[in-house]
């Protein structure tokens, strides 16, 4: 048990990411309001970014920007630059997805006059009948 707690303390970034992920997932499940669902999805995105950036971190190394270009760079000086680029991709896709889903929500609100998913489903079903 003590060993497990020590492991979890050592992996504190990933534990934080897991907590954020579950908070976002809970927000997605518990709320019927579409805007709150989108907020929950964004919190889940944040958790994934935290997990990715922490995968690239190495203790005691600097950010991958050369301070002196004349000295050849060594692997032992800098952290891993690959996950940083992946996080950039993730942020761009998340922004696009958020804007698209918010636009869909605006159109649903104009059609049905409510943001609550169960009301929208009820009214859509009634309009089919």
């Amino acid at each position: 048990m003590k060993e497990l707690l020590a492991t979890l303390y050592h992996q504190r970034m990933l534990v934080t990411a897991a907590i954020l992920f579950v908070i976002g997932f809970g927000g997605l499940l518990f709320n019927w309001n579409l805007i709150k669902k989108i907020v929950g999805l964004n919190i889940m995105d944040t958790a994934v970014y935290l997990a990715l950036t922490s995968a690239g971190y190495v203790d005691g190394r600097a950010a991958p920007i050369l301070s002196d270009p004349s000295v050849p760079a060594k692997m032992s000086q800098f952290i891993n630059p690959v996950p940083t680029g992946l996080v950039l991709t993730g942020i761009v896709v998340s922004v696009s997805f958020t804007a698209f889903s918010l636009a869909l929500t605006v159109r649903l609100y104009r059609k049905y006059g409510t943001l609550y998913l169960d009301d929208i489903l009820f009214r859509a079903k009634r309009s089919v009948d």
Binding site: T7, Q11, G56, D59
Partner: peptide
């Protein structure tokens, strides 16, 4: 949490993510 306990540890230089790809990017990027 169970998965996290089995993942490579945080900040370790010998993690599998710090492989020859990032080494090439760092050493030959300039």
């Amino acid at each position: 949490l169970l998965i996290i306990a089995h993942l490579p540890s945080f900040g370790d230089p010998s993690n599998p993510t710090n492989n020859e790809l990032s080494q090439y990017y760092i050493e030959h990027g300039l």
